[in-house]
Each structure stands twice: as C-alpha cells, then as structure tokens.
Amino acid sequence: MYYFYHPRYFHSPYAPISYRPVHQRPSVDHRLLQQTPNPSNQNPYPPVDPNYLYQSANETKKLMKDASLVLDRLASSKDFDEKLMNHAQLSESEEVKRLIKSIGITSDVEAVYNPDSLRLEFISHHSNSECCRLSIVLKWR
C-alpha cells in the first residue's frame, strides 16, 4: 500500500522527543487579495474639523508661557528653590502648589515630586473639558 501524504516534522524545543506534523497552508490566489477601489471614491472617514485642534494649540501656547514663567523663577532664585524643596520634602503639597501659583501663572498646575525629581503638569480646560496638558520634569538630585 502506498501513501501519498508525507507530513513534515519539526523538533520542539520544549519536548525534544515529541514530533508533530507541520501543516502547510493552502495556496492563495494573490490576484484575489488585491484591494478593489472604493466604488464611490469617497473618503470613508467623517469630514475633518480643525477648530478643536486650533483651540488646543492656542491653549498650549498659554501653558508654555506659564511654564516659562515657572522655569525662569526656578532658574533665577535659589531661595525660592530651597523653599519649594523643603516643603516638598515635608510632603506639604498644598504649600508647594501655592508657591508655584505665587509666580503668577494662570493655568491649573499639578505638582508631583519624589526624592529625585519634580514633575509639573500644566493643565488647560476649554469648553468644560481638558483640552491639553504640558508636562515638565526637573531633576533635583
């Protein structure tokens, strides 16, 4: 009796004694795989509206101005830096936030700190939703 099916075997790295046949995929007609063009030649996505991106970009520019004010103050006053670091070390987060707000920024800011760094996140809200965030991480150790 003759067998026309000859399975191919491979060695398994997990159980070198067991052998399993490798099944071959059926041949595919590549002409059928070509994409047919959209019959109506229309964009399947909704039309774009750049207004929200435009507003978000302008709000982010304001956040960058506030971040620049904070960085200028931190780069120019070691006394301010010492106060900020001391309050952060004592886990007085409200005082840290008050010190940062005392610089004269108008946007909301979140201050997260650890023994190695200070992360400031400037947040802007537009139309009762958060539109953009700007994060700055400063190492202090």
Results as ranks from 00 to 15, higher is better:
residue 43 N to Y: 03
residue 34 Q to R: 14
residue 51 N to G: 07
residue 114 N to I: 02
residue 119 R to I: 12
residue 125 H to M: 06
residue 102 S to M: 10
residue 130 E to V: 15
residue 107 S to I: 05
residue 76 S to N: 13
residue 87 H to Q: 10
residue 91 S to P: 00
residue 111 A to T: 10
residue 3 Y to P: 00
residue 65 K to E: 01
residue 134 L to C: 03
residue 24 Q to F: 05
residue 101 K to M: 09
residue 1 M to L: 09
residue 22 V to S: 11
residue 10 F to S: 07
residue 32 L to C: 02
residue 116 D to N: 12
residue 29 D to K: 14
residue 121 E to A: 06
residue 117 S to Q: 13
residue 55 Q to C: 07
residue 84 L to W: 04
residue 98 R to K: 15
residue 109 V to R: 08
residue 95 E to C: 04
residue 121 E to V: 13
residue 33 L to S: 13
residue 16 P to Y: 07
residue 31 R to Q: 13
residue 112 V to F: 00
residue 64 M to H: 05
residue 33 L to C: 14
residue 132 C to S: 14
residue 103 I to G: 04
residue 109 V to Q: 07
residue 22 V to A: 11
residue 113 Y to S: 14
residue 123 I to S: 01
residue 62 K to F: 05
residue 113 Y to T: 08
residue 66 D to M: 11
residue 86 N to V: 11
residue 113 Y to P: 00
residue 85 M to S: 06
residue 20 R to F: 10
residue 119 R to W: 01
residue 110 E to L: 12
residue 32 L to F: 08
residue 48 V to W: 03
residue 9 Y to F: 15
residue 56 S to F: 05
residue 13 P to R: 09
residue 79 D to P: 03
residue 89 Q to P: 00
residue 83 K to E: 12
residue 23 H to I: 11
residue 47 P to Y: 06
residue 50 P to S: 06
residue 23 H to L: 14
residue 85 M to I: 14
residue 141 R to A: 04
residue 140 W to N: 08
residue 28 V to P: 00
residue 66 D to W: 03
residue 23 H to K: 15
residue 46 P to D: 02
residue 2 Y to P: 01
residue 24 Q to Y: 05
residue 107 S to N: 13
residue 118 L to Y: 00
residue 64 M to L: 14
